[in-house]
Design a protein around this nucleic acid. Structure first.
Lengths: 189, 189
DNA sequence: AGTGATTAGTCAATTAAGTGACTATCATGG
DNA sequence: CCATGATAGTCACTTAATTGACTAATCACT
């Protein structure tokens, strides 16, 4: 039951349509949660039904019409309640780690390739997050912004995303390098 | 369908019972995947049914009997196949990040408390992972071990876990400090 | 002799998440 | 003028994960 709160948190910044929300949650950004469009549309419907958000139709002549959602007072109260309840620690759950765990028993060429692919993906996200952070803080320094900026929540989560992807990239490079070296020197099989 | 492969990867090192596996996957370790005991027992049954692992009864007079599982040739082949197929990038999905995302609209005292709690948890895992790494490499240096050690998969995933938890801890401390400072200077509300 | 913790495992039910296909409208490029 | 792609959204179905309760033995203690 945390997707609902992720949606509420995302709608704090700006009124969004399901489609816009889906884009933010799906590819790229998703610096604090991830979900597929179908989940989001379903969750939006549920949230509206419970009065935690309210939608308004926006008629567009150049595009299909859309419904923009914003958080209601009730929704904000629910977020407040959620923020105050303890949650369990988050765990890593990653295909690639499973593959590396099995690296000693399995052909490493493929794993190395996937590590490099992941590193490239991480690089792309690092760039993306870097840009987002710059845009959020504008011409202020990071320290200045974090002290006196008006909206720092998204900035902080973005910082976490950035650090996570940096960790990912570094680890991928390191692991790939080690597996490569061993493949050569060991002459396995 | 990745839990099955995580189980297979975990059983590469040693024959384990469902119970032992559950302990490794649940609290603490779980440096490459996380699952609850019920899931694991179910998965073990399925894997055995498909012949990817084989179990043998171990009669214990001092404890309840148990079944130890090991990966079969078929299971190893399946892991091999899995390692060669591309997977999608892993995403962050964390309650605490959602709360921080909403930090500007919500009472921060609770969030700060949870950040500190999470930092402490991360510290515990850092210690745990540090110990595991030391035990795995024995008296060799890390570089030496990674070059010539016999089983480095678990070491590499443990390194990722360590880096992840360090990132977690640092970010929690930083975020908590910032939220604290703002709470004082802003006199919000 | 009884309580609680640890080992070992199971069953039922619910919720969350992912897969895949599908309908529309309009805009742009070739 | 037709294909591609973006916008905007929906439906049906399957698989994965979580919640919660439950059995049964043995050990460590008080």
């Amino acid at each position: 039951m945390a997707l609902r709160h992720a949606v509420l948190a995302a709608l704090l910044d700006e009124e969004l349509s399901g489609y816009q929300l889906a884009k933010a949650f799906d590819l790229g950004v998703a610096n604090f949660w991830h979900a597929l469009p179908q989940q989001l549309y379903a969750e939006l419907a549920r949230l509206e039904g419970e009065g935690l958000i309210s939608g308004r139709e926006v008629v567009q002549d150049t595009r299909p019409n859309k419904r923009l959602f914003q958080v209601t007072e009730t929704g904000l109260a629910e977020l407040e309640r959620f923020a105050a309840t303890a949650g369990k620690p988050s765990f890593i759950r990653d295909d690639l780690l499973v593959k590396v765990q099995a690296a000693d028993h399995v052909d490493t060429d493929e794993v190395i390739a996937q590590l490099m692919e992941r590193a490239a993906f991480a690089d792309a996200k690092i760039e993306l997050f870097g840009g987002l952070l710059r845009r959020m803080r504008g011409d202020r320094s990071e320290e200045e912004f974090l002290r006196h900026g008006e909206r720092i929540g998204p900035y902080l989560t973005c910082l976490r995303g950035l650090a996570f992807e940096r960790g990912n990239r570094d680890w991928c490079h390191q692991s790939a390098a080690i597996l490569r070296e061993r493949r050569i020197s060991h002459v396995r099989r």
